[in-house]
Write a protein that binds this DNA or RNA. Structure first.
Lengths: 157, 157
DNA sequence: GTACTGTCGTTCGAATTTGAACGACCACTG
DNA sequence: CAGTGGTCGTTCAAATTCGAACGACAGTAC
């Protein structure tokens, strides 16, 4: 068995601490956010993210595949969630004019106002447990770090 | 409607970019890790994390509740996963000598060697898509940031 | 001892996610 | 035009997660 401190397949103490902190924090944040959204609006976090992406998109609509990429969900999970949001009247499906295979997810007016109503409470959690706790420098470094990782992950598929 | 750029309930562009990068990266990393673990060992990420925590614990054993805190899982999710790991022979349950309500999850020899076999491939992913992409400074800042957030989240429960 | 309050881990049904398989359609080749 | 490979979104069964409810036990008060 090789020495964990020199074997490149392992992480040293600093690296392991970084990784575990990242992992725990992302899980804890996810839990906290889920709890807040459920209590405030009966939404799940994936559903909220879908609304955000649609609100930002031109025409407040996106192709299913593109939306799935954006929110990092599987195709089948997105199909399910869009169906749920459609039942709630926050999103509707439309046929894609340029591609008969395609389906557009469109944010309804009800969906937009729901998002506007829910966003402040949600972002307050993000502030309280993450953003507001970080120095300018930490925020900058974290963004840079996350972007590097994200790019590596997205370009590897 | 208030101006999003001055309303403290919203995030400015820099903060929002940081948050979104964090969110996307954590989801993408989770996906990538899940895929690697499944292919290499038929393990899920939660299962792997359980093995790691047990391996680190004194006597390679932990109370269910303590383990649930460590891996950030609900009690029922942990019950389920420990049952799965028990079927696989990687973990066994033991009664807690000091508290008849308690159950100890104990890492078996098979569990320990499974972990040793799987860890390198797993950590290689963590390196490739996160750790090795960061500068010393980014790693330091990210760790500091994550710890602050984690502490806030854990102490709020 | 009895009662009370809280913690422990499990169980249950409901909701969600996953990956594979599928039919429909697109774009290109010959 | 027929054929071919690839993409699109959906469907399905299986696996996993969640929260509420539960019985069992611990710790304390009286």
């Amino acid at each position: 068995m090789t020495d964990p401190r020199t074997d490149p397949r392992w992480l040293d103490a600093t690296e392991m601490a970084a990784w575990r902190a990242f992992l725990s924090t992302s899980h804890l944040l996810e839990r906290r956010i889920e709890e807040q959204l459920k209590a405030a609006a009966g939404l799940t976090h994936p559903q909220y993210e879908i609304l955000v992406r649609l609100a930002d998109a031109p025409g407040r609509q996106l192709r299913m595949t593109e939306l799935a990429r954006g929110v990092v969900a599987s195709k089948s999970a997105l199909t399910y969630q869009i169906t749920q949001l459609e039942k709630a009247g926050l999103v509707r499906r439309a046929t894609c004019p340029s591609d008969d295979r395609g389906v557009l997810a469109v944010l309804t007016e009800a969906g937009m106002s729901c998002l506007e109503r829910v966003a402040p409470g949600h972002l307050e959690i993000v502030r309280e447990y993450l953003i507001d706790r970080l120095s300018r420098e930490e925020l900058r470094a974290m963004t840079s770090a996350m972007r590097k990782s994200e790019e590596a992950l997205r370009s590897s598929v």
